Simulated assay, not measured.
Amino acid sequence: MARSAASSETDCGGGTEAQAKDVCLRLLAMRAHSRAELAERLAKRGFEPEVARGALDRLAEVGLIDDAAFARQWVQSRHQYSGKGRTALAIELRGKGIAPDQAEAALAEISREDERERATELVRKKLRTVDVSELDAAERDRLTRRLVGMLARRGYSQGMAFDVVKSELRELAANAES
């Protein structure tokens, strides 16, 4: 009885290096992956560690796996499109198996000014629908806590988050008075 391609992929019983490379190429066609992510996926599919290592080494040789490039791309993308701060990005990279030195190099590409600018954009977006002039002191404090919490969950330092929120609220209040 012939086995389907799907079942041979999921329980390959060790599989060959060529099969492991095919699995990796399919995953890489969807999005970039770190070497550790690919190794984990191969292990879940039953590939022996030495087979997986051989396939991953070959893919790295030809430049299809590059953790440093992956980390740089991941950091830029997640910072720009998801509004993540350095702390959250460092945690994500660690979870993806990126070496600390490669993660630090990628994170260094986001300057403190870039991070502050992105935090300011996020706060401004949230404040578009708020009329600060109508808030009493308790509501203003509650709004401040909500905004600082939002930035903290995205990986911005508490000091930066509080400073950005206070600055934006002051600016909104000044514009409302003008």
Rank of each mutant, 00 (worst) to 15 (best):
A2I: 07
A2W: 13
A6K: 13
D11W: 14
G13F: 07
G14A: 01
G15M: 04
G15Y: 10
Q19N: 09
A20G: 07
A20F: 10
V23S: 02
V23F: 08
C24F: 08
L25D: 14
A29C: 10
A29I: 07
R31N: 13
A36T: 13
L42C: 06
L42M: 03
G46W: 15
G46I: 08
F47K: 04
P49G: 02
A55G: 09
D57N: 10
R58K: 08
R58P: 00
L59Q: 08
E61H: 12
V62F: 03
V62G: 00
G63Q: 11
L64P: 06
L64S: 07
I65H: 03
D66V: 00
D67E: 12
A69C: 00
A69N: 07
F70R: 13
A71S: 14
Q73L: 03
V75K: 09
R78T: 11
H79V: 00
Q80V: 05
Q80P: 00
G83C: 04
R86Y: 05
L93D: 11
G95C: 05
K96Q: 12
A99C: 06
D101C: 02
Q102V: 00
E104F: 01
A106F: 08
E109G: 12
R112F: 02
E113D: 15
D114I: 00
R116V: 04
E117G: 04
E117A: 13
R118T: 10
A119P: 05
T120L: 07
E121S: 08
L122P: 03
R124T: 04
R128N: 13
T129D: 14
L135M: 08
A137N: 08
R142N: 04
R146F: 04
L151C: 04
L151A: 05
G155Q: 13
Q158A: 05
M160G: 03
M160D: 14
F162S: 10
V164A: 02
V164L: 05
S167W: 13
E171D: 11
A174R: 15
